[in-house]
Design a protein around this nucleic acid. Structure first.
Lengths: 369, 369
DNA sequence: TCAAATAATTCAACCAATAAACAAATCCGA
DNA sequence: TCGGATTTGTTTATTGGTTGAATTATTTGA
């Protein structure tokens, strides 16, 4: 509802419409013609043609054979995202591995690199130096495919501020690590919480609902909240700490100092020890989330995904009992579709989503080079 | 991040910039000149002049004496919102009263009408007919001031869908009431939950933070979630049901069928019976909200506002203990600044916010008439 | 072989913002 | 008291971008 606080000039109109055309192609199942785009967007064919010319010149779209059609008339030229345009570099650092991947504009993972090693034994700078090695490998592999990286995003299991500072990452034993200062790849770098990025990865999975909660159960429990297709990061970027939602006010002591946090009842160890208790506890906490945010879909990821069948009933029982609107509108529970790579995939997706959402910036950059 | 799915034409540019200028005036403490607006927005003076001419012609802005200034130069003409342009009609229906108010474009309450009567004794159609009488009075009073109502909004203590259908309002004993069908005022009518609208009322209060939780404690407990200056309504419009967040999983049975809902420990009766228990319970539930959404400000309204001093310590104790990021960033607790009228004020504010956020639509309508 | 149909491009017109010059109204200093 | 400095607001030519209509291109089908 709030109009954004910046003036709009004609060039903004073009930027917006470039994004509109590019997204129309991206969301289209077939390979749409210029005329089809015109119909879908409401822009005239003349305008679409001009915009498409720019997008082709900037290596974001390519012309292909059209989708087959019956009847008379000049055949259309099919348009699709280029697999050899800009790409995204997804990075992940976790307790026992480092990973990097290259995703092209169409969303396909083109390259994937993993190094297994216990990151808790290294100081942050050393771990990030190792990660930089992977990043360079990834960039070279991408360049060999004709892909230029538009940026990078790093998934970290911890609290991250908007400017990339990792305040706390308990399982890595990190505190106040200024990642952008230590990891200079010569690329724009975003840093975010792993659950947030995994949630975004899940969102890009085709047909993903635009509003859902992604819950990732590892040693700790994190959640990514996606509202209307956008990740909600919270006032200071620290949303989704569902692991420390109180389930039993006078329950087990938690490492955070409080009692009865969900983490103590549905963390990795607790799930193994007593799946029923974990499911019930998770159900109680998730009911709170649904009552507050009215989410229709909950995705269980991370360590929860393989345990999904064992947890489902217990969770749903509590949801039915404790969600006020349970009989008015159902809550769907489903396992994550991406596996262990979810956060890294999500990170790469964030980068290419940045290009798809603002192609004008990419075109201007490509122009300058 | 998601570009909206509609094309942008030149007229959209004008619509956006009209809104930008109008909001700049609205948010300005003094009475800004065209040059000042130009400086604040980044638009050129020429453009601002043209936009201001339109806004003055549409009776949204007026020229006044400028704010005093020292130094050389031609004196500026001060601009301000017109008190006699479009206004908003705020309506409220609650257990024991009906209310209506007229708020002008500057946010001042110009007229206020209240009828005390137990609404549970009447069928919904009769209650809404009584409300329509108040609405007509309000409109006539507004017309006498030269105010034309741009629309109306109604606050209801219950679950409301996006198209104005009241699914359940337990304390009114309403079920599936199609309000827009029963209440035709010849004006655009929005219907929303009272806590949502009260939260928006609190937002418009000058200096209100753009991200906060508004909690309203009456017989039930509702909450309005405001994220980045926008009310978050949830996937189906039923967010904010904090009253049914579980505090003690095996605790007191609730009328909703579950056990240990917050409502049983911090509802109106519970607060009276045991304020300490109410505060602790509220603290536990609010900690969950903060952990999930990372909100920095919580506003206590409705029946909680007068009890604020008695509840504060108990709530803050739990917040400190249970919010993971409590030592990284504080959570501020404060009482609501609007009193019993909060929801009705918020309703009227929603209407005028609609005009301020999209003045082009109002200008087009005024033109057509 | 030609008419109908559909796709894409070209071109003049229009809308809105910009930049720069200009007019208006005040202050201030000699 | 007068003229320059200063700031506000308007005028005018230019530019960027979309539109709509006309035009060109390419196919199907009678």
């Amino acid at each position: 509802m709030n109009a954004s606080r910046s003036p709009v000039r004609q060039s903004s109109v073009r930027a917006h419409n470039l994004a509109l055309v590019l997204q129309t192609v991206a969301n289209s199942a077939d390979r749409p013609s210029r005329a089809a785009i015109s119909g879908a967007t409401g822009l005239t064919r003349a305008t679409v043609s001009a915009l498409v010319d720019d997008l082709i010149a900037g290596r974001l779209l390519t012309e292909l054979d059209p989708a087959p059609r019956t009847g008379a008339g000049r055949p259309a030229a099919g348009l699709a995202l280029t697999p050899d345009g800009p790409g995204g570099l997804g990075l992940e650092i976790n307790v026992d591995y480092l990973a990097a991947c290259v995703v092209d504009l169409t969303g396909v993972v083109r390259h994937r690199f993993v190094t297994r090693a216990d990151q808790r034994l290294l100081p942050p700078a050393a771990a990030l130096a190792d990660l930089a090695v992977l990043a360079v490998q990834a960039r070279e592999a991408a360049a060999a495919d004709g892909i230029e990286l538009a940026g990078a995003a790093l998934a970290v299991p911890g609290l991250v501020t908007a400017n990339g500072l990792v305040r706390v990452a308990p399982n890595l034993d990190w505190q106040d690590v200024d990642v952008p200062a230590l990891l200079d790849l010569g690329l724009p770098l975003a840093v975010d919480n792993e659950a947030n990025l995994a949630a975004l990865g899940e969102l890009r999975t085709d047909g993903g609902p635009p509003t859902f909660l992604y819950v990732s159960g590892e040693i700790g429990i994190g959640a990514g909240i996606v509202l209307d297709g956008e990740l909600y990061r919270g006032g200071r970027g620290w949303s989704g700490e569902i692991g420390h939602v109180t389930v039993y006010p006078d329950g087990r002591p938690c490492r955070c100092g409080a009692n009865g946090c969900l983490e103590q009842y549905a963390g990795q160890e607790a799930v193994a020890a007593d799946p029923d208790l974990a499911a019930a506890s998770l159900g109680i906490a998730l009911s709170a989330v649904v009552n507050l945010l009215d989410l229709g879909v909950i995705v269980l990821g991370g360590g929860y995904a393989p345990e999904f069948d064992r947890l489902r009933d217990g969770i749903e029982t509590e949801l039915r009992r404790r969600v006020l609107t349970a009989d008015l509108a159902p809550v769907t529970l489903r396992p994550a579709t991406l596996g262990a790579d979810a956060a890294m995939r999500g990170a790469a997706d964030v980068v290419i989503a940045g290009v798809r959402d603002d192609p004008a910036r990419w075109l201007a950059r490509a122009q300058a080079v």
